[in-house]
């Protein structure tokens, strides 16, 4: 089943300086439980694409079909430092006025499973960057979204943390079987986490290629990084991105 489907999406911005084509006939889908990564040169319209999927922007033409609710994870965790971890995690349910016992129990189970339960009475500023990003993911998952949009979720972290956190986040997402669209400029991250990688061209962004990632010997991003196929995929994507 498809959770997200884009059909021939075009986007043109009209400004005082004239028309600016940003997206050129983009079509792809995300299946249930699948992680799809989008990589592209900076300024290739990745954010525009996300904004269209999240309905902040309207496509000039084409169609976007989303099955169910969207959950977001941003570059920064955006945890509120005046709320405890627990209250931060519940903010989505609080906004939806949906804090019944069952939902809270489920959140507690998630926290226990991912070893965050001991920190629920702490304030975010007392925790490490990696832990904060995992908490931000649980905050998003608390409202049980059908598809996750991750917008450069690790780029604010230092190198070592970012590899560890992407590993943790990958396991949580796969565990919970949430369909995910990951936007990143980091090729290794895309190969490590995604089942398929979509490569976009320079502006106006065309879909250059969809690459299926199949690394049978490894199950986590960390292990995948060490595999032989990893380097090959890297070269292919690197080549596609640098092609004029």
């Amino acid at each position: 089943m498809k959770t997200l489907e884009l059909i021939n999406v075009n986007k043109t911005f009209y400004t005082e300086l004239g028309a600016l084509d940003v997206l050129d006939n983009i079509s792809f889908d995300v299946n249930e439980g699948e992680i799809v990564a989008i990589v592209g040169p900076s300024g290739s319209g990745k954010s525009t694409l996300l904004n269209i999927i999240s309905k902040l922007l309207k496509p000039t033409s084409g169609e976007v079909i989303v099955e169910g609710d969207i959950g977001y994870m941003f570059q920064h965790d955006h945890l509120f430092n005046w709320r405890t971890v627990w209250k931060n995690i519940l903010i989505g349910l609080e906004i939806k006025k949906d804090k019944d016992e069952k939902k809270r129990e489920r959140v507690k189970e998630l926290l226990t499973k991912y070893e965050l339960i001991d920190f629920i009475n702490n304030y975010p500023q007392e925790l490490s960057g990696g832990m904060r990003q995992r908490i931000a993911l649980i905050r998003t998952l608390a409202t049980s979204p059908n598809i996750l949009l991750l917008d450069e979720p690790f780029s604010a972290l230092d190198y070592q943390t970012r590899i560890n956190v992407s590993n943790d986040i990958y396991q949580i997402i796969k565990d919970q079987k949430v369909s995910t669209l990951l936007v990143t400029h980091d090729i290794s991250e895309a190969i490590g986490m995604a089942d398929r990688v979509i490569v976009l061209s320079h502006r106006p962004a065309k879909l250059k290629k969809i690459i299926e990632i199949k690394i049978d010997s490894a199950t986590t991003p960390l292990e995948k990084r060490k595999s032989q196929e990893f380097a090959q995929y890297f070269d292919v994507i690197w080549g596609l991105l640098n092609e004029q």
Binding site: S54, I70, G71, Y72, F74, Q75, H76, H78, F80, I91, G92, I95, K96, T140, T143
Partner: peptide, 18 residues
Amino acid sequence: VEVEKIRMLQSFKATKWQ
């Protein structure tokens, strides 16, 4: 106040009052 923090709340469909 950071625009992305507002977007985070909007992603949960927060009202302006919230």
